[in-house]
Design a protein around this nucleic acid. Structure first.
Lengths: 325, 325
DNA sequence: TTGTATGCGTTATCAC
DNA sequence: GTGATAACGCATACAA
């Protein structure tokens, strides 16, 4: 593979001039400029981008840490990030962690090793203390309510969002309420649980462990929930479901078991994915695309200003009333 | 940021020894090894991976070119790629193209610039001739039936798959058949159209342009299709739908318009996404995860053998009978 | 087992 | 306007 030196030789100029031409630098005589481009053509030359990265100390790549890509929640966020990244001439390096701490650490190490200029963390299990050790290595943006300003964040207030859903159900007369969630660990999940408990406490109900369904991510999981509900002596009358996918599963599998929404079971879910509209599920709209966009903008802003400045940004949620309650 | 030279100085050894220690090279006295690690700790040192990339001429990154991430079809493929990549110590760089030729070219250029060691093309619009210009720059794997062996490929035979669906519908007595597709360009789509035409020709029916629905990707698009069908004088009795998402949309929006599957409209779709099971849609299972896995394995195999060897691999499809026909 | 020297391919600083 | 030349930080062939 030809390099810049060979181009210089063939064009009869110095490597510095070649570099200037290649980077559209002014102050190069038209005649030499032409000679350089001709040599580039002739030798079928292309820059080695790794050398550029090394010399510039930048890669124009941003890392995206997430548990899995294959879920509408995360792929919507990635879509938003990607959109903005492309606009700004950045690329995305995927760190699929499956919530494995080792893998998450690896992503952070990649930031330190300058593989990526910045890192967007869509979800994590790694603890806050570990995270903070990397804050000097480049801008990190968290898609969750960060405890303090050491790390940037753009987030959905899941306490507020869950409370919105709970109060809506309670307002409709429900008192026996359960919920479905992807995992019980993680700050977002903890916030949701807090909202759940607080809302129930206000109406003097106590949270029931067996009405909390963990590991609910996909349509399939709705089936599991329906089966569990059907074999219960005492069932909740309403469910708050952290993902439209799961809610869709509950509606559809519920139908085959004679468990119909909203009569047998009221549902409020989250995301406002097209499936919720098609199934007429009342949902709480989460601005996922926007979250991705803003996350990238925050990273990018740090990169161009060279600071870690910026403040946490809370994104608005909105209840979309349909016919599942 | 400390570099390898500073470590060497502090540890009282040469940079070569430091490099050996860092890379778990044998033949280093335990005592020096320890000294190096101590210096590493003390200076909080981490490798600059760009220097490694430059020196080794490899990045251990594989590029993934796709139109959009935010669709179950593609995110399933990415999941498969990612799984294998992680197992082999590789990372994924995302090239979201939105089928824009400029963006696709950029991804190919990144291969030439050695940003990525190889490239997996999940879908494309760029022409074959352009593609071939990059075959020397690193292993390229195409997720479609490649014309020849210049470029590796792992694919689903969409002609065969579509024919399978068509013949199933025809076997059930349908003759007035239309289809829904994501886009009409692209080799996969052309193959599908060929199968559609061929199957109809065999029963002496002629393809009807107005029964072919383009731009069908998501649940929303099912709504559009239903509306179009409802305003037709003469409707098809069956539809072959290239994505479970769209089929789900058709089923669900159809219900609200009194257009019910299978009585008013028979449906066979593709993917075997959980949504098709939940809606009891007859679908043709596509091994997307496997396709991603195999695609990475092919790239990886080229990378470790240093050849472009390997042959195209066709993946099996399977009709899953349910109740939408 | 260890060190020296060179290569990887750019960018950027300076002197002219 | 242009050209040497020094970074950038690591890997590695060769010598010892």
């Amino acid at each position: 593979m030809a390099n810049i030196r060979e181009i210089a030789k063939l064009a009869g100029v110095s490597v510095a001039t070649v570099s200037r031409v290649l980077n559209d630098y002014p102050y190069v005589k038209e005649e030499k400029r032409k000679a350089v481009w001709e040599a580039v053509e002739k030798l079928n030359y292309t820059k080695n981008i790794n050398a550029v990265h090394l010399a510039k100390g930048r890669t124009y790549i941003v890392g995206v840490m997430l548990p899995y890509v294959n879920h509408p929640y995360f792929s919507a966020i990635v879509e938003g990030i990607s959109e903005e990244a492309l606009r700004c001439g950045y690329h995305l390096l995927l760190f699929q962690t499956n919530y494995d701490v080792q893998k998450e650490l690896e992503a952070l190490e990649m930031l330190r090793m300058k593989q990526v200029d910045g890192l967007i963390i869509c979800s994590r299990t790694i603890n806050w203390e570990t995270l903070e050790m990397y804050k000097e290595d480049g801008p990190i943006v968290l898609c969750e309510d960060a405890k303090n300003d050491d790390v940037l964040s753009v987030y959905i207030d899941h306490y507020e969002a869950f409370l919105l859903g709970m109060n809506y159900l309670i307002g409709k007369g429900h008192r026996k309420i359960g919920y479905c969630i992807g995992r019980t660990t993680g700050i977002n999940s903890q916030n949701r649980h807090a909202a759940y408990s607080d809302a129930l406490r206000k109406i003097d109900e106590t949270p029931r462990e067996d009405w909390i369904f963990d590991h609910c991510l996909d349509i399939d999981d709705g089936k599991r929930v329906v089966n569990a509900l059907c074999s219960m002596k005492e069932r909740p009358t309403a469910l708050l479901v952290s993902s439209d996918q799961v809610a869709a599963g509950i509606v559809l599998w519920g139908q085959s078991k004679g468990l119909n929404a909203p009569d047998d079971l009221a549902l409020v879910s989250f995301d406002n994915h097209p499936i919720s509209e098609a199934l007429s599920i009342t949902t709480i709209d989460l601005p996922l695309l926007l979250m991705g966009q803003r996350a990238f903008q925050m990273v990018h802003n740090c990169l161009i200003t060279g600071t870690m400045a910026g403040q946490a940004e809370k994104l608005p949620v909105r209840l979309v009333e349909r016919r599942s309650v």
